[in-house]
């Protein structure tokens, strides 16, 4: 109770101060915001959601705090679904997501009167990896479904394709709570059940997957491109053929959309109300988008192409409205 009254007393004051400063700065919105922020803006920002986007939101938090320690940001990693759950009841200001919001989640938001803006912040690529000695270099999407689909019974690589070596398949993948799993199950495999096969070694910890695939002959697994990049000496990435020939996973192919369907956008969802009412949220989001390339690099994601970045900036300007 104390907190609410404290907020009521302080927030309008801070908001008025911020407004007056913004008015002084005027003109070029992007530049003046960060300058005004150094002296004026304070308050708290609650961020929760995808553990994939977590490093980016933490990087934004850190870099912002170097300039302005008065903006108190907390970042959690409840998962994309868990994040939307608290976001749509108004408990958090920003929700990190490794997939677009789903209809039933959006319905909860609407019910609670939480309006939001979706901002793409980076591109992530799923990478299918195999043990380095395995003679499999390229998989078609159909082969990927044969390997990971919910009805798959394949136990030997030759079950997938007779040209593949005669070796037992060992599968490693993220657990069912992770956004990476959702992405693979719903968007890549696209089965109605939105599941993958269940007889694989599951771990939420990508390091366990890396060690598992690197240490087991005939093993395959999938996780984010950044994990592959850091462990490329231990693992072999498989190129993906979605009908236009084999495409190796890389920053360029993920951004251009060639590396489909295994490249995915990462988002932050900003509550419109928090953005307009809480200057700290505005400060954080503006900083986040302004320094997106640097933050994506720190978070080890593929930064947005110029075109996509322009789209994100346009969406943010719509919010500033």
């Amino acid at each position: 109770m104390k907190r609410t009254s404290f907020r009521r007393a302080v927030v309008p004051g801070v908001a008025a101060l911020a407004l007056s400063l913004a008015a002084c700065g005027g003109g070029d919105a992007g530049a003046s915001d960060s300058e005004g922020g150094e002296t004026a803006v304070s308050g708290s920002v609650a961020v929760d959601g995808s553990s994939t986007v977590y490093p980016m939101s933490v990087a934004a938090q850190e870099l912002l705090n170097e300039q302005n320690p008065e903006v108190q940001v907390t970042v959690g990693e409840a998962g994309t679904g868990g994040g939307f759950e608290v976001f749509c009841t108004g408990e958090t200001d920003i929700s990190d997501a490794s997939r677009p919001i789903e209809e039933d989640e959006a319905a909860v938001c609407e019910e609670n009167g939480v309006e939001y803006t979706e901002l793409q912040v980076a591109t992530d690529a799923l990478t299918v990896v195999v043990h380095p000695d395995l003679a499999v270099d390229c998989l078609t999407v159909d082969e990927l479904i044969a390997l990971w689909g919910p009805k798959s019974k394949a136990t030997n690589w030759q079950d997938i394709n007779p040209e593949f070596p005669d070796q037992e398949i060992k599968l490693f993948g993220p657990g069912t709570d992770s956004g990476t799993y959702d992405y693979m199950a719903a968007d890549v495999i696209g089965d109605e059940s939105e599941t993958t096969r269940k007889d694989y070694e599951a771990s939420e910890d990508d390091n366990v997957l890396v060690e598992g695939v690197a240490g087991t002959e005939g093993a395959t697994g999938y996780f984010g491109y950044t994990y592959y990049e850091q462990n490329s000496d231990k693992l072999k990435a498989v190129a993906i053929d979605s009908g236009n020939g084999c495409v190796e996973p890389s920053a360029e192919t993920a951004q251009s959309g060639e590396y489909t369907p295994l490249a995915r956008p990462l988002f932050i969802y900003v509550s419109n109300k928090s953005y307009t009412d809480n200057p700290a949220v505005k400060e954080y989001v503006d900083f986040y988008i302004e320094n997106l390339a640097e933050i994506a690099e720190v978070g080890q994601f593929i930064p947005l192409s110029d075109e996509l970045y322009a789209e994100t900036q346009a969406a943010l300007e719509g919010l500033q409205g």
Partner: peptide
């Protein structure tokens, strides 16, 4: 409780994290 908090707790109503939570959060980083 959030895993990443970059300020000191200031009282009963302050956002906070705890040592075991930070350990949990960091052990799953790459």
């Amino acid at each position: 409780l959030a895993g990443s908090v970059l300020f000191d707790p200031e009282g009963m109503m302050s956002k906070v994290t705890a040592l075991p939570m930070q350990i949990y959060s960091l052990t799953s980083q790459s």
